[in-house]
Simulated scan of single mutants.
Amino acid sequence: MFSASVMAGIYIHIPFCRQKCYYCDFYKTVNISLQQNFIEALKNEAKIRKNYLNNETVETIYFGGGTPSVLTAAELADILQVINHEFKVSSGAEITLEANPDDLTPAYLAALKSVGFNRLSIGIQAFQNRHLQQMNRRHSAGQAVDAIINAFNAGISNLSADLIYGLPALSETEWKESLKQVFQLPVKHLSAYHLTYHEGTAFYTWLKKGTLKELKENDSVAQFNLLLDMAIANNFEHYEISNLAKDKLYSRHNTAYWMGTSYLGLGPSAHSFNGASRRWNVSHVETYIKALKNNENYFEEEKLSENDKYNEYILTRIRTKWGISQTEIQQLFGAEKAQHFAQQIAKYKHAQVFKANRQKITLTRKGLFISDEIMADLIII
């Protein structure tokens, strides 16, 4: 809704995991016996929703999860074939697969490249086995290193790694080791997230019981600062709150989200957005499969009000290096919302949490630490 370009993205949610990580609250299931029925339902949904993107060119395809790398390369190719048949996919599209390190064997990597994947997002999370075991990750630190090297050797050079800081008992030395390790590898993109204790996860339950202790806030802040300092020293650009890139190899898919581009979400729990409405699929794979088979409803939808659209702009743009433009707010949403923004932003005039450059307002490092508070002030409730 904020971009005039006719381009779009497709997100495909693969809900299967071989085992559940103790911190993760994304929709997933370990019932991999449902995979074949799921793939048929997914292909059916793609065909049913072929007109959702209004024939806009698809510039990014992103397989998330769950753990998409539990599917074989042939199964992934089958899904891609349907996507390419039903949608207008750019010949230079960014096609990303989220993957677990222990799935990325040389043979599997070669097969992924041959069927069209040109970007991998590898879920490493930590380079210490004790933290990996505590999170119930199914790979070792050594497998994480091997996965990145093997992927690069297979000819997939656009590689992203995920790390988590703020883990229970994660020392500054360990965090520094993890960052040093990732920056030594042929990685062009890093997603670094602070651990969040989501209700319904094992970590949340243990935190409430007192068997798991949250890292002190000062230590988390120090780890975030270390992340940014080491990233700068290794020529990585901090372009979004949790994302850093080298050689401008931003995640094109996620950047399109933040810039207001339309996207189609396929699979259970997947979200779709077309500028006027938001739609989300049921978070239950059996219900999803049954509904697609029987032509039943499997989603909910909401129309976006003008306030919703303004809030969407604020919440996504403020996260990025591209920032917020007061002029753009007036053009897109009118003088009243531009005035609201100006009044709210004035509260922070002397707080050094914003910087202005070419009419764009972005968060300073100090502002990043209180970004949630700032967002709450700027949106319209």
Rank of each mutant, 00 (worst) to 15 (best):
F2L: 13
H13I: 00
I14Q: 14
C17E: 05
K20I: 02
Y22K: 05
F26P: 01
Y27C: 00
K28Y: 03
V30W: 04
L34P: 00
N37R: 14
F38A: 04
E40P: 02
N51E: 15
T57W: 11
T57G: 10
T60L: 15
I61V: 13
Y62D: 06
G64A: 11
S69W: 07
S69D: 06
V70Y: 05
D78C: 03
D78A: 02
I79Y: 08
Q81A: 08
V82A: 13
F87H: 07
V89Q: 13
S90P: 10
S90C: 15
L97W: 10
A99I: 11
T105H: 10
Y108K: 12
L109R: 00
L120A: 11
L120D: 05
I122V: 04
N129S: 13
Q133E: 14
Q134W: 05
R138C: 12
H139P: 05
A141F: 13
Q143A: 07
I148D: 12
A151W: 02
I156C: 08
S157E: 14
N158Q: 09
I164S: 12
I164E: 08
A169L: 09
L170W: 01
E172F: 06
T173R: 10
K176M: 12
E177L: 02
S178D: 15
K180H: 15
F183D: 00
L190G: 09
A192H: 01
Y197C: 11
T201N: 07
T205V: 03
K209Y: 02
E217D: 14
N218D: 15
V221F: 15
L228A: 09
D229N: 13
A233K: 14
H238I: 13
Y239K: 00
I241L: 15
L244K: 03
L244M: 08
R252Q: 14
Y257L: 01
M259C: 14
G260C: 11
Y263P: 06
L266G: 00
P268S: 05
H271E: 12
N274P: 06
S277Q: 09
W280I: 02
V282P: 01
I289P: 08
E296M: 11
K303S: 09
L304S: 01
K309P: 02
L315R: 01
T316E: 08
I329W: 10
Q330Y: 12
L332R: 05
F333M: 13
K337Q: 13
K337I: 06
H340C: 07
F341W: 14
Q344I: 10
K347Q: 11
V353S: 01
F354E: 04
N357Y: 14
R365N: 13
R365D: 07
L368A: 08
F369I: 13
S371I: 12
D372I: 00
E373C: 03
A376P: 01
L378F: 11
I379D: 08
